[in-house]
Every structure is written in structure tokens, then in C-alpha cells.
């Protein structure tokens, strides 16, 4: 028998295979998406009842982002747990790919789930809060959702990989994630409020999110080998 044949897939292709694998498994169970979506909606309903009248735009954008962040934590917590069940992470680690492929695959998968939850939640937010103007600038809104969620997923994925081997991972992830993500959360709230009701300048907030996104995509790329090493 001829042994050891085959041509290795490229970096991006391997990243795509990991995303597709996660997406396929999620399509079958829907456990992650359902819990993330329900959690986001429940948080928004509570916010809605807390405000008797019409909610100010800054508060609305704050409520949106806090709900999205809380929902994301649920997904991020499970992200590497699934890889550790039945030792699947070992299967990825012995696959002929750079270890950062695993990080980027998981990061993109998480980003996709977070973004999907946000997309489905937005029309409901518009109805709950009687805010049809949410969709007055759809591209700007989509832009900030992507930028903010990018940071949540980038930081959350590396922290999920770090905390997965600890007994208190469900507690540890938010404890580590929230302080790190706070500047991006504040900036995202500011930019979203500006989109709903333009006032002042948002350049410094966009710059902050941009810097965060760049840093937290480079740092895990450099550190992921050490994070997953036994």
C-alpha cells in the first residue's frame, strides 16, 4: 500500500473547514444559538420593563450591547468545551496545520454565531422599544456590530481556550473577559448611539475599537501555540 500521500489544504481553507464543522454541528443541535438568542432576548425584555417611557438612545444602545455581550459569553464558554469532549482538540492539534488555524476557525465560528444572534434580535428590539429608526442607517449599524462583535469574539475565543481546562471555567471566562472588553463595549455603545442619533464625534471611539480588534487578533495568533500546549 502506498502510504503518506495527500496534498495539505491551505491556511484559509483549513480555517473554513473548522468554521463549517462547527456550523454544521450547531445546525443539527441548535443548542448554542437557541440559548444565546433566548438569553439576549430575555435581557432586552428586562431592560424594556425597567424603562416605563421611551428609552433614551444611549441607554438603548447600552442595553443592546450588554445583552449581546452576555449572550456571547454563553457561546464562548461552550466553544472550546466542545473541542475537549472526546479529545477532539487533540485531533486538531495533530492535524497538519498551523495551530493558529484552530484559533482563527474558532474565532470566526464564534463571530458568526454572535452576529447571527444580533441580526435576528435587531428587528425584535425595534418592535419591543418602538424604534423603527434603528434601521435608518443599516450599513453603519452592521459595521459597528461587526467591529464590536469582532473584539468580543477575538478576546473571548482566546480566553475560552485558556479557561477551558479549569474547573471554574463558566465563572472565569466572564471574570477575565468583562474587564478586557469594557473599553470596546463603551466605544460600541457610543458609536451605536451616534448612529441612532448623530451628536458630537465618534472618531476616537472607532479608533479605539479598531486598535482593540488589531491587537486581539495579533496577540492570540502569536500565543495560541502556548495556550493549547499540554
Amino acid at each position: 500500500m502506498e502510504v503518506g500521500k495527500g496534498k495539505r489544504a491551505g491556511f484559509l481553507r483549513q480555517v473554513f473547514y473548522i468554521v463549517a464543522k462547527d456550523f454544521r454541528a450547531e445546525l443539527r443541535t441548535k443548542e448554542l444559538f437557541n440559548s444565546m438568542f433566548l438569553f439576549a432576548m430575555l435581557a432586552l425584555v428586562i431592560f424594556n420593563f425597567s424603562f416605563a417611557g421611551k428609552m433614551p438612545v444611549r441607554v438603548l444602545s447600552g442595553a443592546m450591547w450588554v445583552s449581546f455581550l452576555f449572550a456571547s459569553v454563553l457561546g464562548l464558554n461552550r466553544s472550546f468545551v466542545k473541542e475537549h469532549e472526546k479529545g477532539c482538540i487533540e485531533g486538531l492539534l495533530i492535524a497538519p496545520c498551523e495551530r493558529s488555524v484552530i484559533y482563527f476557525g474558532k474565532f470566526l465560528g464564534n463571530l458568526l454565531f454572535i452576529f447571527l444572534v444580533e441580526l435576528i434580535a435587531l428587528p425584535l428590539i425595534s418592535i419591543f422599544f418602538s424604534r423603527s429608526e434603528i434601521f435608518s442607517k443599516p450599513f453603519e449599524l452592521a459595521g459597528i456590530l461587526v467591529l464590536g462583535s469582532f473584539a468580543i469574539s477575538a478576546i473571548g475565543t482566546i480566553l475560552s481556550a485558556i479557561t477551558v481546562n479549569t474547573r471554574t471555567r463558566e465563572l472565569l471566562l466572564p471574570i477575565l473577559l468583562f474587564p478586557l472588553i469594557l473599553p470596546v463595549l463603551i466605544a460600541s455603545v457610543e458609536v451605536t448611539a451616534y448612529i441612532f442619533q448623530p451628536k458630537g464625534s465618534i472618531i476616537q471611539w472607532l479608533r479605539l475599537i479598531g486598535i482593540y480588534d488589531i491587537i486581539f487578533i495579533i496577540v492570540p495568533y502569536l500565543l495560541f501555540d502556548y495556550v493549547v500546549e499540554e
Binding site: 495527500g6 496534498k7 481553507r13 483549513q14 473547514y17 464543522k21 454541528a25 469532549e85 497538519p96
Partner: peptide
Amino acid sequence: NTLLYEDLTAFENLLFYARMYGVP
């Protein structure tokens, strides 16, 4: 460990690994 994903079918599991290894 089996290194297999429980929520994927037998075929999907093997297809995932086959693609990662570039199996023709």
C-alpha cells in the same frame, strides 16, 4: 479519546479530518 465530534455523523467526522489532511 475518540477525537470524534459527537454531533456530527460518521461520514461528516471523517470528511472533516480528510479535508484537514488534504486527502484526495
